[in-house]
Amino acid sequence: MRAPIGNFDEDAAAPAADRTDLLVAPVAEAVTRGWGGFAAEQILHVDTDPDLADTAVFVEHYGAELLDESANCVVVAGKRGTGVTLAACVVLSRTRVDVNGAVRRHLGARKASFAPMDLAVGESGMEYGGITPVGLPTAWPLLIDPAVLDEEWVLIGSGSRRGKLIVPGKSLAALPGAVVVEGLGV
Rank of each mutant, 00 (worst) to 15 (best):
R2L: 14
I5P: 12
G6S: 09
N7W: 11
F8T: 07
D11M: 13
A16I: 12
D18Y: 00
T20F: 02
L23A: 10
L23Q: 04
V24M: 05
P26W: 08
P26C: 13
E29S: 13
R33Y: 02
G34T: 03
G34P: 02
W35Y: 14
L44M: 07
V46G: 07
V46C: 07
V46S: 08
T48Q: 08
D49K: 12
D54E: 15
D54Q: 15
D54C: 00
A64V: 14
L66N: 06
L66K: 04
D68W: 11
N72D: 01
V74Y: 01
V74R: 03
V75H: 01
A77H: 03
R80M: 00
G81Q: 01
L86F: 13
A87C: 12
A88G: 12
C89Q: 04
V90N: 02
V90L: 11
V91Q: 09
S93D: 10
R94S: 13
R96V: 00
N100H: 13
A102H: 10
V103C: 06
V103S: 05
R105S: 12
R105V: 12
H106Q: 13
L107C: 03
A115G: 09
A115M: 12
A120W: 11
G125A: 08
E127F: 06
Y128G: 06
G129M: 10
G130Y: 05
G130D: 07
G135V: 07
P137D: 03
P137A: 04
A139Q: 14
L142V: 00
L143H: 07
I144S: 05
I144Y: 07
I144Q: 09
A147V: 10
A147Y: 00
A147N: 08
L149Y: 01
E151F: 01
E152T: 14
E152M: 03
W153Y: 14
L155I: 03
S158G: 03
G159D: 06
R162Q: 15
L165W: 03
L165Y: 04
I166S: 06
P168F: 05
G169A: 01
K170S: 13
L172I: 12
L175F: 09
G177I: 06
A178G: 05
A178E: 08
A178I: 05
V181S: 10
L184P: 08
G185A: 14
